[in-house]
């Protein structure tokens, strides 16, 4: 399979807009270099923080932009060109405003501070991105596999993940093993459009 793959285009760069907007000066003062970026988007504020301070930062947000009742919306991982990223979203209940908090980590030893104690809803998505991207979540009470079976090797949502064709859970795929017998002819190249 890998040799058939079209050359991957460059990954989208992490955050194009560095810098802190004036509205978030108080947070910048408190977190210094650990607040990497803070900007306003059409959806709401968007922050990038150091992964080790993620939980502290969200706790600080609960005194400013998240002071109102808000919903824990989502957490997920993204692989960027040079870094792994986790994205947390919160939504105000009263009006359309989505607060996004990101953290960038190196690809070799990624680790991030868990929000699972503050927001119990973060327990499952953190387990999910931990197994899918190989990110260590520190301070999480329960780090078993969530969607993948126990003992699964590798992190499937990483771009360099190779599917384990000899995995005991997978039935042999005749199409993959002997395509000529199944199709009656050599398989056509992938990526061709009808």
């Amino acid at each position: 399979m890998p040799e058939q793959e079209a050359p991957q285009p460059a990954a989208p760069e992490a955050e194009r807009v560095p810098g802190i907007e004036p509205a978030f000066a108080a947070l910048a003062e408190r977190f210094g270099d650990e607040l990497v970026a803070a900007r306003k988007t059409a959806d709401g504020p968007d922050f990038t923080v150091a992964p080790a301070r993620l939980a502290d930062f969200v706790a600080a947000l609960r005194e400013s932009v998240l002071a109102e009742p808000h919903l824990f919306v989502d957490a997920c991982g993204v692989e960027r060109e040079t870094a792994l990223e986790v994205v947390y979203r919160f939504s105000l209940v009263s009006r359309r405003e989505i607060v996004t908090v990101r953290a960038h980590m190196p690809k070799d030893k990624p680790a991030v501070a868990s929000l699972a104690v503050m927001y119990p809803g973060a327990r499952w998505p953190e387990r999910e991105y931990a197994e899918m991207f190989g990110i260590t979540v520190t301070g999480h009470p329960d780090m078993r596999h969530l969607l993948l079976p126990e003992g699964w090797v590798g992190h499937p949502l990483r771009k360099d993940y190779v599917y384990p064709l000899d995995h005991p859970y997978l039935a042999p795929d005749p199409l993959r093993e002997d395509p000529v017998r199944v199709l009656g002819h050599a398989p056509e190249g992938e990526g061709e459009e009808s």
């Binding site: 009742p69 919903l71 824990f72 919306v73 989502d74 927001y119 809803g121």
Partner: peptide, 11 residues
């Protein structure tokens, strides 16, 4: 409660 439901991501 509503507070817990929000922290759990109930929707």
């Amino acid at each position: 409660t509503a507070e817990e439901a929000l922290a759990y991501g109930f929707s």
